[in-house]
Amino acid sequence: MTAALTAEGLHTYYGKSHILQGVSLAVAEGRITALLGRNGAGKTTTLRSLMGLTPARQGKITIFGEDTTRWPTFRIAAQGVGYVPEGRRIFANLSVEENLKVPLERGGPWTIERIFKLFPRLEERKLNRGRQLSGGEQEMLSIARALLINPRLLILDEPSQGLAPLVVREVFRIIQQMKAEGISILLVEQNARMSLEIADDAYVLDDGMIVYSGGAQELAADEARVRSLAGASAEEWTLA
């Protein structure tokens, strides 16, 4: 089992506050790795450190065999890392079609035509501006944008946030489909139960430290732990 991404002993700060205190994790190639944890545990910071957006002060990051620890963000992404940021970060003044023309054209199976086949809704709305889309459509657009750089590794930060249960199911179905395409996936979620249903491996982050690492199923079986992780709203949902 080769790793798409490994992080060893990451320490990240916002100003003086010490957010990540030695985070180590690995994303195995072709598998879905879930990174769970309560609000403020450091999940988003972990992803931002991996992407070079908030660089870690200490530690080492390896992506597809390259030491990317000191690389600028665009170079990390250009290696084949698709990033779906927290809050989706759609370009609100740009049309859907223009949003899809921003990513680097790395070459590969994903083209705008293929994206429109996967997300027919985006084609219908291609001339609408980003800000005119619903939350679910924005999430689709954010995922579509990340797919267009033809990623080998897809990093998603809370894709289910603020979406209706039906739309969340759709998003998770697409994540599974991406795994079937051979893309390695690192998924950060509040929605612990549903994430563990599709994940192969799992990590739990608490106060900037990894407190669980292992199989997703083993974690899912630990009812008390899952309950303590799940956000109140998400507790009852299942993938069904």
Binding site: T73, F74, R75, A77, P85, V102, L104, R106, I149
Partner: peptide
Amino acid sequence: LDLETVAALGIN
């Protein structure tokens, strides 16, 4: 609008 996200999409 958002230079950080443009960078995260692989643009120099």
